[in-house]
Design a protein around this nucleic acid. Structure first.
Lengths: 163, 163
DNA sequence: AAATTTATGTCAGCCATATTGACATATTTT
DNA sequence: AAAATATGTCAATATGGCTGACATAAATTT
């Protein structure tokens, strides 16, 4: 044997045709999530803040636990980011009117505006991507992505997206 | 006004139809990248190791600079992860035969095997997602993702995926 | 041949975001 | 009254990014 046993042949899409979509997902997501970075930098926020602001804007009045379930992180991880957003006036906490243990999360006007600025470049990327595809192409892309979600999460996600 | 001016209405898909795809991308990618975590944990590796092992297996003999360009990170960030993979025998460095400044990266047999184990659950997720879609659906999903990549990167990515 | 550029690596420190575990408080449910 | 729940917090730790500075070897340019 040589130095060790270094492998010279690439793992090819012939042996593993799913590599095409695996890598397209990587490259597409890499560029997609980088869009809001410019805006975030101006506010001294990171991508974690973006995710929180986004979902609170999409689901005003959601509980902290709901947010944790969407993001699939721990409350300690969420803690700092959420605190910063509250302290700087982008998100508000309101005690649950029924269950007063809950701290329902609402965006402020400032928080709504920030989310819209963050969403804008991503929406633009999507619009131009969809343009050449037509309605059927769009539907197919949607169907594919839905099927990529864990089956156990699919219904919940479908509901959240509808609103 | 009340407490502050908390916004009660959700940012809706009616005002911003692209939200559907924005969120589907988030949820799909969230679950997609979590697949290899079980395997990675057994090896005491993280997602960063996965990415490196993956691209070196796909492009044996690639330069460090090529890897940085794909991952869009700095060499210092890559450094630690790459060193661990070399020290533990998953990746090998070979001086470039033409330009001896280069350290060409190759997977070892061990590195190839690891990549295949990591890819397996992702490939399985994709196969079952594609099944109900048919060939046209698959093509549409591929087209969409390609168009989501930065235009300046598209040709390079297309070439890398072909091999 | 000397100077410059390139490819890579390394040291040091910093930051963002994630983790686990333990514990505290208020409130609701049993 | 006791137990469970929703949330928050303290502390320590890990991972994976970053910047900046500097080092080395080899290729390229002058």
């Amino acid at each position: 044997m040589q130095r060790d046993e270094s492998v010279k042949t690439p793992l090819s899409i012939q042996e593993q045709p799913e590599l095409v979509l695996i890598e397209l997902l990587f490259y597409a997501y890499r560029d997609f999530v980088s869009d809001p970075d410019v805006v975030l930098a101006k506010f001294q926020f990171g991508r974690a803040h973006h995710r929180v602001v986004h979902f609170v804007n999409r689901h005003p009045g959601m509980r902290v636990a709901d947010l944790l379930d969407i993001l699939k992180i721990t409350k300690q991880s969420l803690g700092r980011v959420l605190k910063q957003l509250i302290d700087t006036g982008y998100i508000e906490q309101v005690p649950g009117p029924v269950d007063r243990r809950q701290r329902l999360l609402y965006p402020t006007a400032k928080g709504r505006a920030l989310d819209q600025r963050l969403t804008e470049p991503q929406a633009e990327r999507i619009r131009t991507a969809l343009e050449p595809l037509g309605p059927e192409g769009r539907l197919a892309a949607e169907r594919f992505l839905r099927l990529m979600i864990d089956p156990s999460e699919r219904d919940k996600v479908a509901q959240m997206i509808e609103q």
